Computed example of a mutant assay.
Amino acid sequence: MSIQQQTKDAIIAFIREHEGKIEKLPSEQEFAKLLGVSRATVREAIKVLVNENIVYSRHGVGTFIVKGTSQLSTSMNILESWTTIISKHGFTPGTQDVIIELREADEKIAEKLGIHVGDNVVYLERLRTADGKPVVFVIDYAKYHEGMIQRYKETLPESFLAFIEDYTNSYLDHVICRIQPVSATGEIQKKLRQVHSHPLLFLEQVHCTQHGDPFFYSESYVISEMLQFNIIRKKPT
């Protein structure tokens, strides 16, 4: 792990420890002395935290904690696994209630993956947690490769995205994503261990290679009070 990543993680831990007690962070110089690193390293770590909407800076005044940083947040402009999103906020990612099996693609899945109806696909469902708390229930459908299911069961990786890239020696370049608000009802509510119906964000994502070929399709039910998405909108040029 790089010194910048270690510094970023240490600042996140500081924020969590002092949550609700302070609004303004110590100066770069104070953090550098506290963490035993250079001011330049602290400055770069804070830039990353600003981009991730965990802190914000006011020129000549200082760096401040964004309210609600105990909530996970991520940019829609960046392709990250759930494991990365959870880890970068200082939480321990977890995976529970895993079901992985071989299935035949129906018409919908065949269309999403660019394959034929009846072709074999890997079906994977699981609950992703942060420090043991449910965050998102995920269902993935991936193009089948020989031995993939057995390898997954043997290694039980946290990140399915990283697992697929490693197993198939592929690079997943981008996703085509659709988001809509839904309510946690019935089976999904049970999967997320919600006693009452809560607002969810439903993400449909087709993960593609650098050549635009669909590789796996996912349906994610995100507890909206646990995770927020940010997006940068620019004027047309």
Rank of each mutant, 00 (worst) to 15 (best):
M1H: 11
M1C: 10
M1D: 08
K8Q: 14
K8A: 15
A10W: 07
I12G: 03
I15V: 05
R16G: 06
H18L: 07
K21V: 12
I22M: 02
K24G: 05
L25A: 05
E28Q: 10
E30R: 09
A32W: 02
A32R: 02
K33E: 15
E44C: 00
K47F: 01
K47C: 06
E52W: 08
I54T: 11
I54L: 11
I54M: 11
V55I: 10
R58F: 11
H59D: 09
G60I: 06
V61S: 01
F64T: 04
F64P: 06
G68L: 07
S70W: 15
S70R: 15
L72G: 02
S73K: 03
S73D: 02
S75L: 10
S87D: 10
S87Y: 07
H89F: 12
H89R: 11
F91P: 07
P93W: 04
T95K: 15
T95G: 13
I100K: 09
I100S: 13
L102Y: 00
R103A: 13
E104C: 00
K108S: 09
I109Q: 09
A110H: 09
E111S: 13
E111Y: 03
K112L: 05
L113T: 03
G118M: 05
D119A: 08
Y123E: 07
E125W: 02
R126G: 03
L127K: 10
K133I: 12
V136Q: 01
V138R: 01
I139G: 00
Y141V: 07
H145L: 12
E146H: 12
I149Q: 08
I149A: 07
Q150S: 15
Y152T: 02
L161E: 02
A162S: 09
D166I: 01
Y167N: 03
N169Q: 13
S170W: 04
H174F: 14
V175N: 14
V175T: 13
V175R: 13
V182A: 14
V182K: 14
K191R: 15
L192A: 09
Q194A: 12
Q194I: 11
H196F: 15
S197L: 04
F202I: 00
F202N: 06
V206Q: 10
C208I: 02
C208R: 10
T209W: 03
G212L: 04
G212C: 01
D213T: 13
P214Q: 05
P214E: 03
F215L: 12
V222G: 03
V222C: 09
V222N: 01
S224M: 12
S224N: 12
E225G: 00
E225I: 04
Q228I: 08
N230A: 09
K234T: 14
K234N: 14
K235D: 12
